[in-house]
Write a protein that binds this DNA or RNA. Structure first.
Lengths: 147, 147
DNA sequence: CAGATTTAAGACTCTTTTGTCTTAATATAA
DNA sequence: TTATATTAAGACAAAAGAGTCTTAAATCTG
């Protein structure tokens, strides 16, 4: 798999939150139920996003989580970096850490081209775009359950 | 990391074997020593490649492993498929298994473009090219130790 | 044949990732 | 104030990935 499950869950939850019409806090229990992700596990993941100031949270009745800033200002890269750390597609395809622009492995340049495209996709894809596409029913996130 | 460690080790070992001038069997002990990979672990990985007919092996004195066919007929994709299974960069970036060309997730098309480039790179990159580039001292595989 | 060398196979351990559960803290509402 | 709802935090458990070790089987050499 491309991204860790933790990261996937975080992204899906963020899309779900971004897709809410009202700007209220969304309880994690509701997200976990709709997306079919374990409540406690999701709680931990969203805690991380809260700590990284991608989400904000509120406890107690009517509490939950909400985006910390406008959906068009949160990119996939922001979320992935917060959870899986920077540089999600390791520097070298062969996992060699001496590999660099200076001392390139045989695949370095070609891999760099692809990596840059991925990074660009991750940077320019915002929660706003994802949520719009999703709620426009081109894809229904909430229908999904996993194997 | 992009590929599993198991897969990385398998690729490196295969490049090393392909880079040998003589067409003799190379003992796994020598490979593991040169590439600084645990002998027993590497043995298991290369066993897998042998079972998948990418390598052939021979026991006893002067035994070891060798490519099962010409280096230009073994691609990165062959090795990755043998070890990590097909489809190394999962179908859907968000890990949704209902996502398909028919029912595409919001990132489906753009991700498809990138995935196709990766697959093409993996298919067209052969051990012959990798070994040539490596032994030409543009990159010395055997110098490398990992963190 | 006896001994050395080398892969094969599988049990076992360690680490990381994934997931669960319990308790505490915070907020609302009656 | 008391009960209820909700996130925070951390201990704990299960599963998967990575790595080690032991024994068996095959092959060569003397």
């Amino acid at each position: 798999m491309m991204l860790s499950k933790t990261c996937d869950y975080g992204i899906r939850a963020a899309i779900f939150v971004a897709g809410r019409k009202d700007q209220q806090f969304t309880p994690i229990g509701e997200i976990s139920e709709q997306l079919n992700i374990s409540f406690h596990f999701l709680t931990k993941i969203l805690q991380r996003l809260t700590q990284e100031s991608i989400l904000k949270s509120y406890r107690g009745s009517n509490g939950g989580v909400a985006l910390a800033r406008a959906a068009h200002l949160i990119s996939l890269k922001d979320i992935v970096s917060a959870i899986d750390g920077d540089n999600p597609f390791g520097a070298c395809l062969l996992g060699l850490n001496q590999c660099s622009d200076h001392n390139p492995c045989p695949l370095h340049e070609q891999w760099n081209l692809i990596r840059k495209k991925m990074e660009s996709l991750f940077e320019k894809t915002t929660l706003a775009k994802l949520a719009t596409a999703t709620t426009a029913k081109r894809f229904r996130l909430t229908d999904l359950t996993e194997p």
